[in-house]
Amino acid sequence: MTPSRPRRPGELGLTLLLIGSAFLLGREAYRISGFAGPSSPGFGPLAVVAVVLGGLAIELLRILRRRPPEREPLAVRVRRIGHEILPLPVLVAMALLVAYVTALEPLGFVSSSILFLTAAMLFLLRGPLSRRLLLAVPVATGTVAAIRLLFQELFQVLLP
């Protein structure tokens, strides 16, 4: 919290992004019922957006008071962001996750989940590929089978 702490990469960007989104939400909140009485449906959203914006404004000031990041070569900077904010495993996991959720509907739950689990485990596990495969495929299949049995058969959740 000390002002002397240098800015973290992306800190300013995130705050500005949040402020931008809050303004969008504010406009949407205003559209509900304008500035009407306290029991109108738009009052709450507008009030809360005001709190968010106020908070973010203070946060913005705090960030601006901090030392801006030193100039450094792009490669160093990218590596630093990678280390602090988005390490490679996280980035890959996010990509896998998004791919998994998009595949849920066309492929169905069982195949997409087995694929996701296998891919994620192959990527995260260490060791020779054959050993990883030997571990990942049975674990993935077993997990999905157990989940399907539990949810679909017992709890009548019709999985996609």
């Binding site: 998994y100 849920l104 509907e105 485990m121 596990l125 260490r126 674990v139 997990t143 989940i147 709890f155």
Partner: peptide
């Protein structure tokens, strides 16, 4: 490496089970 992917799949199924709807899955993700 094994637990985290399973946690994610459980989260996805769990979100789906709330209302049998993929919308909730998208929200959760």
């Amino acid at each position: 490496a094994i637990l985290l992917p399973i946690v994610v799949v459980l989260s996805v199924v769990g979100a789906y089970a709330i209302n049998n709807s993929l919308t909730d899955v998208y929200w959760a993700v």
